[in-house]
Amino acid sequence: MPAEILKEKFTGRVQEVVLGATKDEGGTRAYTVKLGGSSTLPFLQFEGDIPNRPVIAFEIWDIKPDWHECFAEYYSDVWEDPVAWAKKAEELGADVIYLKLRGADPELENSKSPDECAKVVKAVLENTGAPLMVEGPGNPDKDNEVLQAVAEAAAGENIAIGLAEKDNYRGIAAAAMMGKHCIIARSPVDINILKQLNLMITEMGVAPEKIINDPLTGGLGYGIEYSYSIMERARWGALIGDKMMAFPVVCLAGPEAWRAKEANAPLEDAGPGWGEQKPRGIMWEAMTAAALLQAGGDLVLMRHPEAAKLLKKHIESLMVPNVY
């Protein structure tokens, strides 16, 4: 008896978003990265096309981060210097550099000014070739000032700026439009707000091909299933033609995974059977990322080079065509 392969026929697809601009396009990036574009569920290439594989972004900060000591081995020689750190991220295989401007947090002593932030971004752009994403310090007023300055400094480079949220998106959307950059729209693990925020940003005049969604992914063991199901539902919405759900998704796998005690605890504080911290931490991040890929992540933010290596290999195997 012949077996018929069941193929879902979808009418919609995920919007394709290009990040970065090369010399020909008015920027200085060595290459651009395309996100989204899929017309099928994650990796189901037999019933639709996946024109762009998920990409890996490396997280870097503009100040020394408060991360677990296991990262010192990779980053201690660069994490006082965002430019050197960005170059290192490229060496380690980053498709995209994701710069968090934590140093601009107004709660900090010597909080960086918008001008200083713009200089950092400019310097990173001058010394690297990967497309760039820039996240503000997380304080609404300061985010607006900083991202405005960053958007101007990076004019022509088609970076992504964020995070735009429901109560703070106008200034950031305006800055993104002025500089012709992409915008990262974050919703708090809430699909209704995700959709509404996309509509509001679109109504401001931001083009669909400039919007990236951050559904605020939870880490493994700490609510990842909520994000997972929201991302699945968003992808489904996109595929059945809901244009306000059809934007590429960025997953903050690294930062979320490393908030877990299970990633950080040394052997002497570990729970029974947890084993050594080193492989455990790496796997915690890699597994968080791998799960979010299955839910439809288009760009995965990673922290640990070994976890990123594992994920890269995993993506390569998932992208082998499974056409019948």
Binding site: L194, K195, R233, K243
Partner: peptide, 15 residues
């Protein structure tokens, strides 16, 4: 059948 958002009636007309 469609995902709720506050402006759902508007989004419905746009697709």
């Amino acid at each position: 059948q469609s995902i709720y958002c506050d402006s759902y009636a508007k989004v419905f007309r746009q697709r």
